[in-house]
């Protein structure tokens, strides 16, 4: 009355246990594909998390178009464009890092990851310059908004969204930097090979998503007309 027969699992006998394979997976392929699905599902949750802010921004923008357009002139689009380019290039170096891992080139992998890390740092530096400028002028969110000489009322709402959206994005950049630093550390220890590079790929996906969100933030924040 049994539902199944059992077969001894072949893998345990034929191969030595490959490095990086967790015990509950049958082989590297199953592990890689499972973690990839997991990562993409996580990215979907990130999209919806930011999505809530985008929907709120869109609705409030359509309610108060004049205030939003007037407020965005306080942002410097050149700094925004600079940061866009910085993030795009960092996305490129990240994907090159994945390529270096896939082809088993340890030195290049470390080089590309380090470049990505530095570019992320550069992004945060530009962000810091922008933020301190806003703080100085009293362009702050919500009830802390204290900018003098506004002709259009309600601009605080734009800055509420500006700080919430770029702030949440900035937190993601910082978390990405931590993850990339971890990759660099593991790469130096020689953990990765053309057989096992899952973590590089996963962090890469995360990093591209951070880039992707910024691609939308840039025109919505800096280039309103």
């Amino acid at each position: 009355m049994s539902q199944s027969t059992t077969v001894p699992s072949q893998d345990h006998h034929e191969h030595a246990h490959p490095p990086g394979l967790q015990h509950h997976f049958i082989d590297m392929r199953q592990q890689f594909e499972a973690s990839k699905i997991g990562m993409w599902l996580f990215l979907v949750t990130e999209v919806l998390l930011f999505g809530g802010l985008f929907v709120g921004y869109g609705i409030m923008h359509s309610k108060h178009p004049e205030a939003f357009i007037a407020a965005h002139t306080h942002l410097d689009w050149r700094l925004g464009a600079l940061n866009t380019i910085v993030l795009l290039v960092s996305s490129f170096t990240m994907v090159m890092g994945v390529w270096a891992a896939q082809t088993g080139q340890k030195k290049k992998l470390i080089g590309y990851l380090t470049t990505t890390f530095l570019l992320a740092g550069a992004f945060m530096v530009v962000k810091y310059i922008e933020y301190s400028h806003k703080f100085h002028e009293g362009l702050l969110p919500g009830k802390f908004y204290a900018h003098q000489g506004d002709t259009v009322p309600g601009q605080f709402m734009f800055f509420s969204f500006y700080f919430m959206m770029t702030g949440l994005h900035g937190i993601h950049v910082l978390l990405g930097m931590v993850a990339i630093a971890w990759l660099i550390w593991r790469a130096q220890k020689g953990h990765f090979s053309s057989q096992y590079y899952g973590p590089v790929d996963m962090v890469g996906l995360y990093w591209h998503l951070v880039d992707l969100i910024w691609i939308y933030l840039f025109p919505l924040m800096y280039l309103l007309t």
Binding site: L49, G51, G142, G154
Partner: peptide, 27 residues
């Protein structure tokens, strides 16, 4: 995730008065 961002917005509303849910502030 949408609940997450909703609740964060509510906390922001309480702490910063961001205005999105407050009719007095155009929300």
């Amino acid at each position: 995730p949408v609940l997450g961002i909703t609740l964060l917005l509510l906390v922001m509303e309480r702490v910063l008065s961001v205005g999105i849910f407050d009719p007095n502030l155009g929300g």
